[in-house]
Structure formats: structure tokens, C-alpha cells
């Protein structure tokens, strides 16, 4: 099938690529660009492992055509840390024990980041809602929720 041009910004880097229409954003990231932080846990939208931010909003990269991301800004877990500084959410996940096997972690972080960007004062229920499309088999979610709450709290303090 014919490749089509794709202009895309990923973690702040601009790419001019040519991709096949049936390439998903997840395949583009993992297979073509070696950004393996996003994980395929199901390939059909259910598990949340592949979640990335598209223009600041969490979306499933396994159910997004790479071409549909044309002209957007994509953030993956690799792009969360800025200039060697961990994102407060990453720091909080680490400190709160929100990471066990880690397979769900990047998706969880991206959903949490999406929430923090769009609703920095989210409460417990909103946090749970934001990550409710993500399955974690290890943590029972408790520590993940606490980790996000702590960051939201901090952003409240700053005000």
C-alpha cells in the first residue's frame, strides 16, 4: 500500500515521515521510532498500556492511525522528563510505590498527566475515573491513586 507523508511532533521532536495508512500510532512509536515505553497489552483499546498524549489528551495509540496524528503533538512516557528532571508524576509514582511490574506504568502516567494538564485540582473520584480505562494487575490501584493525589495536592499548594 502506498505510504503517505506524516508530519508529527513527538516529545518535542519534529518528524517528517512516510507511513502506510494501516500503521497504528503505537506501531509507529514502538517499531519505527524505537520508543518502546508505550506498551501493547491488548491491541484493542481495553488495557490502557498504549496510552499516549495527543495534544495533551490521553488517547489509545493502538486504536489511532499514525496518519490521524498528523499535525499533532504526541507525548510518550519517554518525553515526560524534561532536561533530565523527572516529571512530578514520575517522581510521585516512584516514591509512592505505584510501580510494581511496570507494564501498566507508562499508560497510567500518561492518563494521569492528561488529567493533571486538564484538571489540576482533580479529586479522588476524578483521578480514579481518569485511570479507570487502565488495567493494573499488580497494585490494586491504591498506590497509583495516592501517587496522583499527591501531585494534585502539590499543585494546589503552589497556588
Amino acid at each position: 500500500m502506498n505510504k503517505q507523508p506524516l508530519e508529527i511532533s513527538i516529545n518535542g521532536d519534529c518528524y517528517s515521515l512516510a507511513v502506510e495508512p494501516n500503521r497504528t500510532l503505537l506501531e509507529l512509536l514502538r517499531e519505527d521510532l524505537d520508543l518502546t515505553g508505550a506498551k501493547e497489552g491488548c491491541g484493542e483499546g481495553v488495557c490502557g498500556g498504549c496510552t499516549v498524549l495527543m495534544d495533551g489528551k490521553p488517547v489509545r495509540s493502538c486504536l489511532t492511525l499514525a496518519l490521524e496524528a498528523s499535525g499533532t503533538h504526541i507525548t510518550t512516557v519517554e518525553g515526560l522528563a524534561q532536561k533530565g528532571e523527572l516529571d512530578p508524576l514520575q517522581q510521585s509514582f516512584i516514591e509512592h510505590g505505584a510501580v510494581q511490574c511496570g507494564f501498566c506504568t507508562s499508560g497510567m502516567l500518561m492518563a494521569a498527566k492528561g488529567l493533571a494538564l486538564n484538571n489540576p485540582h482533580a479529586g479522588n473520584k476524578e483521578i480514579r475515573n481518569a485511570i479507570s480505562g487502565h488495567i493494573c494487575r499488580c497494585t490494586g490501584y491504591t498506590k497509583i491513586i495516592e501517587a496522583v493525589e499527591a501531585v494534585v495536592d502539590r499543585s494546589l499548594e503552589k497556588r
Partner: peptide, 21 residues
């Protein structure tokens, strides 16, 4: 002590490699 997991940083930054990767 409540010490963070030693592999948590790699996992939270996407560096950790699984068989998938």
C-alpha cells in the same frame, strides 16, 4: 524504611525493557 523500588525509575521513564521490547 519506605524505600522506592530500585527499578522504579527505569519503569517510570520507559527505559525498562520487557520481552515485548
Amino acid at each position: 524504611k519506605r524505600i522506592s523500588k530500585v527499578d522504579a525509575v527505569d519503569k517510570a521513564t520507559g527505559r525498562a525493557l520487557y520481552i515485548q521490547d
